[in-house]
């Protein structure tokens, strides 16, 4: 189960990267990057998954005593939470840049912005 989701996650990352590196349109690049981020999140969570165990909530169903035996590893989930929000932050910033770049040169093609070279 974990292996399958890992594979899914990695394929998503690779697809995202492929999209980001081949598409010339900036917005499509940012979309590809969000896909890659989603892939990373899937990988992160699937590493923490353990078979036949439940979510790390200690309530009536999972009393504190048996917690160690019944819940899955909470740490990857914490990391993912932060990672998603940071991913959103960076995406929002890139979108703002994309918009400003568009305002600058009137086009969204990355190869239009090459005056800083050599």
């Amino acid at each position: 189960m974990a292996q399958v989701s890992l594979l899914i996650g990695f394929t998503l990352i690779l697809l995202g990267l492929y999209g980001a590196l081949t598409n010339r349109d900036i917005l499509r690049m940012i979309v590809s990057f969000t896909i890659a981020d989603a892939g990373v999140n899937v990988v992160l969570v699937s590493v923490g998954y353990m078979a036949h165990r439940t979510a790390p909530i200690l309530d009536s169903a999972v009393p504190a005593g048996q917690a160690a035996a019944r819940i899955i590893d909470p740490v990857p989930q914490v990391l993912v939470l932060t990672a998603i929000v940071i991913g959103l932050g960076v995406t929002a910033l890139m979108l703002a840049y994309a918009y400003r770049l568009f305002r600058l040169r009137g086009s969204l093609d990355i190869s239009q912005f090459m005056d800083l070279k050599w």
């Binding site: 974990a2 969570v45 899955i72 989930q77 939470l81 998603i84 959103l88 995406t91 929002a92």
Partner: peptide, 23 residues
């Protein structure tokens, strides 16, 4: 499915909701 409800909620709210809107 991977027993991570918190993450699911966040992903739903932020991933599909806000990001799509921003785009």
């Amino acid at each position: 499915l991977l027993a991570a409800p918190d993450v699911a909620m966040t992903e739903a709210a932020i991933g599909s909701g806000l990001t799509t809107f921003l785009f």
